[in-house]
Design a protein around this nucleic acid. Sequence first.
DNA 1: GGATATAGTTTGAATGTCAAGATGTTTGCA
DNA 2: TGCAAACATCTTGACATTCAAACTATATCC
Lengths: 143, 143
Amino acid sequence: MPAPMTETAKLSQQIVELYERLSSWEQDVVKSSGLSPAQMHTIEIVGHCGAALRMKELAKKMGVTTGTLTVMIDRLEQQELLRRSPHQTDRRSYLIALTEKGRELFAEHHQYHLRLTEEITATLSQEERAMFSAVLGKIIGQM
Amino acid sequence: MPAPMTETAKLSQQIVELYERLSSWEQDVVKSSGLSPAQMHTIEIVGHCGAALRMKELAKKMGVTTGTLTVMIDRLEQQELLRRSPHQTDRRSYLIALTEKGRELFAEHHQYHLRLTEEITATLSQEERAMFSAVLGKIIGQM
DNA sequence: GGATATAGTTTGAATGTCAAGATGTTTGCA
DNA sequence: TGCAAACATCTTGACATTCAAACTATATCC
């Protein structure tokens, strides 16, 4: 007979489970786009951020080194999904921004996220949805 | 002025945000263990599953090909974190299970997860925690 | 008993990753 | 001003991850 599980243990397990499922969902969706997961992640970060970013800033947001980012941006630039433009006042820097094609890809991917969110929260009551959002807000604030 | 965000859009954004933060938290924790993220992920899946698994089963659970898994298991076996043992009735198969050292690593990592869960849910009321768990259960059931 | 399917490994190619070093630019200070 | 130090990015070399496809050994089905 398994030991009784504490409330924290159950929550932890559920969070891990949710993470795993989101992860494999994302993997499936990305596969159909032709990009690698890391490439799509880059598009997502740049797209979500909105404003153009320096390499250094983007690397920090993504948790990779600038060396890694250089080749990532090279490839995405070859696919015309984003563009380096010279920084106005700092000639060492580039500003990274999505092209029109990149924005379209980002928008499409965003729609997938919205659809998933609708699906997985479909059975929640109005009250549960509101409370879930409030709790998520608190949790994210703690991290 | 930004367009008003629908409730679904807000939830979607929060889920993405939570995912991102869990992801970078895990990356930091794994870095301190000396293993790569993929290696730790393998340990987590095998450890969480409990029973010994065939290569094929494990590959499916992890969403990788068996070819990928072969070299992953090779490396983890070299580090004595898990072991291949012959399948009792099918001589084509191995059963993959954690060693004592692997179980210790898994237990330690599991403790990190518990601690994180406690931290991020610390400000929730008893009621909120219960409801959050119930909603997570529903959501996971929908995926 | 032989054809076919299955489990796992190997190989070759592409990508992702980092640390360390190189290049060009900016900043701070003497 | 002019030079040293800091900074942003890129390059290089090494290794990990990943897949598809070919390969080996075993199991299953007729």
